[in-house]
Write a protein that binds this DNA or RNA. Structure first.
Lengths: 191, 191
DNA sequence: CTAACGTGTTCATTATAGTGAACAAACCCG
DNA sequence: CGGGTTTGTTCACTATAATGAACACGTTAG
């Protein structure tokens, strides 16, 4: 068995707190843990209970993991994808036309598509990753959505959210074309 | 702010211990935590310190994470929001018109909006929660997006992803109306 | 069948987590 | 510059974590 040191909770909390520009007082208010206790924790003078750490994580608006494993570097995104640069996927001749907005780096994290359906076409999918979800907005026309045993007919402006870790189908059974925007959310790995 | 329950340590530890075929006595020897304490922890009679949990994880030869996270019940979503039922927010007279697709239950998790901008209107926002991001698709017309020091002009079909935990503005400086779809993602996950 | 052993629970005590208040140092504003 | 405020640390006390020992119940072997 490999020796794993205990987590460096004190240093981690102090680092994250300062990164967020919080004082001990500020974090005490947000977390419900006393300022005195926070000071003792950050300087490794006490060994806090799990519930205390959970409260601190809640106050910092981070996962409990981040405290156990250490902080992360803040990087601010500002990334543009032009219409002409969006990747285009066609599932098959005569099938739906798919444009991918989200960058490759976000594959299996949060994926954003626009899908255009000619009359009578369908997007048939098997189960995605466990707990994955889809959020679908109808931009134009009307579609039918099936996930497992359930189904719904949606008009322009309608919205649906369903789990897609089961077989699911989006189809346009009508005589007019339809257009949707679809978000696929995967449950993210820890830091 | 959405409440995240504390980790169910007691049940998780007992589940893993039994899966490994260990008694309380056996785990006590391997972990260096008293049998009495293990019993109290497993029956949620005490709130253990992080070091105690670390010792138990070492005794079970697992990552500390496994104790915090444990298992979960699969529940599959299938939730429709009709166009007529989408909440409408108008920021001010003459300002942008906002329709909210995502349900209240997803507030500060993943929020999905459609925003219509009359010519010359703008959506001005202060910083959202730390690490929050926006994903914006231009459905119609053209808009300008600014986040911190950076800005971009977007046309129909363009897409942008930026961190919105800083001041940010979306405006339509043109003579024609514009329409966007905006996704706001907050970095909080339930256990 | 009975005594010994195994497993988990409870009790009384010791050790320490967690708090409110006081303190010390740094900072800010008139 | 001086007084007030802010920020982090320490102290004394209360609350509770963690322990060894005793207890309760179930199982096993002679």
């Amino acid at each position: 068995m490999k020796p794993v040191p205990p987590p460096k909770i004190g240093a981690n909390i102090q680092k994250i707190r300062k990164e967020q520009g919080l004082t001990l007082d500020g974090l005490a208010e947000r977390s419900g843990v006393s300022k005195a206790m926070l000071s003792q924790i950050e300087s490794d003078k006490v060994n806090p209970t799990v519930l205390t750490i959970w409260k601190i994580a809640r106050g910092l608006e981070i996962e409990l993991d981040a405290i156990l494993k250490g902080g992360w570097e803040p990087v601010r995104k500002f990334s543009v994808t032009r219409s002409s640069d969006a990747a285009v996927l066609d599932t098959s001749d005569g099938g739906p036309h798919i444009r991918v907005f989200s960058p490759i780096s976000m594959a299996e994290d949060l994926e954003i598509y626009q899908v255009n359906f000619d009359p009578g076409t369908a997007l048939v999918s098997g189960p995605h990753a466990p707990r994955a979800e889809e959020f679908l907005t109808v931009l134009d026309g009307a579609v039918r959505v099936e996930a497992g045993e359930r189904s719904a007919d949606l008009q322009t402006g309608d919205f649906i959210n369903y789990h897609c870790d089961i077989d699911h189908v989006i189809e346009n059974p009508h005589d007019a074309p339809a257009s949707i925007q679809m978000i696929v959310r995967f449950h993210r790995k820890p830091f």
